[in-house]
């Protein structure tokens, strides 16, 4: 047996073991070296096809509450990670040419594109107002309250420096603004807003929607109250599992905003 054959057998043995029961760190390193950067998935696909052929999966079903949590978490991640064009990560990466290639290919077109862009500005429809613009517009409406957030003792608020909540009972519309609220991993947890309504019991605040903070700096988030808020008396942000909860245990409460008086 040649050294090349021995090496190939060793690689196939490791690929099979990887597909069937996983490899130790040492063996995984050996396989990575033998594969030289090109992982062969065909053994894993064969094991998966055997899994389908030899194991009855028809009867299994996760509990409904598990499904709900998984769905909420995954769809929240999907919504948060969509690219500007709405496509998923791979679809964009696969189609994105290398930056230098783009530049060389684009050079002859740049001048023409610039001219077209200048002409287009004249007839382009008005852009959709940003949340920031909408917040400013709401601030000009009568009866709107603006309340500053108060940071509480929670790691998510450790870097918080500024922010407020703008809300209109009449318009049932509002925006939250944060500077320095800790970005969250939507797979693990999400922020959830609660609106306390003076016309209801304080034990049952209104769910103001779950949201993510994806970046440092100023973030503006629209409020999504699930039911009508008659007289907002306090706003609280909790950290909850992905998808949010119906009743919060309020164990993590980074920010609170209470109007004076």
């Amino acid at each position: 047996m040649t050294a090349q054959n021995t090496e190939r057998d060793r690689m196939e043995e490791l690929l099979a073991e990887h597909a069937l029961s996983g490899l130790s760190a040492e063996d995984a390193a050996v396989l990575a070296e033998l594969e030289a950067g090109e992982h062969d998935e065909s053994y894993e696909l064969a094991a998966a096809a055997l899994e389908l052929a030899l194991v009855d999966h028809e009867q299994a079903s996760p509990p409904a509450e598990v499904m709900e949590r998984i769905k909420a978490g995954v769809l929240a991640h999907a919504a948060a990670s969509r690219t500007a064009t709405g496509r998923t990560q791979d679809a964009v990466e696969e189609e994105a040419p290398a930056p230098l290639a783009v530049l060389f290919r684009a050079l002859p077109w740049l001048a023409a594109a610039a001219a077209i862009a200048l002409a287009a500005v004249a007839w382009m429809p008005a852009r959709t107002p940003s949340f920031s613009d909408q917040r400013v517009a709401l601030l000009e409406s009568p009866g709107v309250m603006t309340v500053a957030w108060q940071a509480l003792e929670d790691p998510a608020a450790a870097g918080y420096t500024d922010g407020d909540v703008v809300w209109s009972d009449a318009l049932q519309q509002g925006y939250m603004r944060f500077v320095g609220l800790e970005p969250n991993d939507p797979l693990k947890e999400q922020y959830q807003l609660w609106i306390f309504d003076a016309s209801r019991s304080a034990d049952h605040p209104v769910d103001g929607g779950v949201f993510n903070v994806n970046e440092a700096g100023e973030v503006i988030v629209p409020i999504d109250a699930k039911i009508r808020v008659n007289q907002a008396s306090m706003f609280a942000i909790t950290v909850e599992r992905p998808g949010g909860v119906v009743v919060s245990d309020r164990s993590r409460l980074p920010l609170l905003a209470q109007p004076a008086g």
């Binding site: 996760p62 598990v66 949590r69 998984i70 978490g73 995954v74 991640h77 999907a78 990670s81 998923t88 990560q89 791979d90 679809a91 696969e94 797979l187 992905p242």
Partner: peptide, 14 residues
């Protein structure tokens, strides 16, 4: 299980 679905979302193109 949640991680699996997220991986499928991210790498569906594969």
């Amino acid at each position: 299980m949640q991680e699996i679905y997220v991986e499928l979302w991210k790498h569906a193109g594969r």
